[in-house]
Amino acid sequence: MTDCILETRNLTKEFSGFTAVNGVDLKVQRGHIHALIGPNGAGKTTFFNLLTKFLTPTDGSILFKGRDITRMRPADIAHLGVIRSFQISAVFPNMTVLENVRLALQRKLGVAYQFWRSDSMLHRLNDQAMALLEDVGLGKFADNITEELAYGRKRALEIATTLALDPELMLLDEPTQGMGAEDVGMTTELIRRVSADRTILMVEHNLGVVSTLADCITVLQRGAILAEGPYETVSKNPEVIEAYMGASDVEHA
């Protein structure tokens, strides 16, 4: 058994002459919260989209639990237990909060193509969905239309939906982006709580969040790894400080 759950080897993505991700070798340890940081344009989101198969790499490979998933389709890696979130809040806006979570639970029933059955058969998932909503503090909003939720709560719902699939590896794309201080605290706490028994790889701008949560940090710059290690080491690395103009980490940490 290897304790490295996700590995990339020489992962590269070129967009007509511009190399967004340049030969990245990354290893994510099982059970860790691994954060991916870097200045704007460092290639974080591209790298993230490569991992989740929303983009196809130009070169290199991606291994999940030692298995090559480089050529798989996005829906297939979800079946393996790799579930991603999105930078913009990824909810189903006109469905109720409960229906959002239930939709994730529904996949395991294998009834996605059954157009001749009544959807009341999905009610058996309601208790499980409620439990997940209670977990993220959304129990009393279950019957609200999702669109009406405050931004921070939508992000919490997104995490509940992701958890519904019981992923081995959660990929979170800037989970606290655009949040007020209060929501950031709530979300940080939530991520910490759900990280038990799971591995999380997150892209995050907020160094405050990274410093409290992450076991390991990878700093990307111009599509390549600049530094890697625990927060204490990385934050003292002179190159990293320079990349961040010495400003933001002092401000947030």
Partner: peptide, 14 residues
């Protein structure tokens, strides 16, 4: 109003 319909709706929304 089927399980399939729910997934269709989800695809349309996001």
């Amino acid at each position: 109003h089927s399980p399939f319909g729910q997934v269709l709706r989800a695809i349309r929304e996001n």
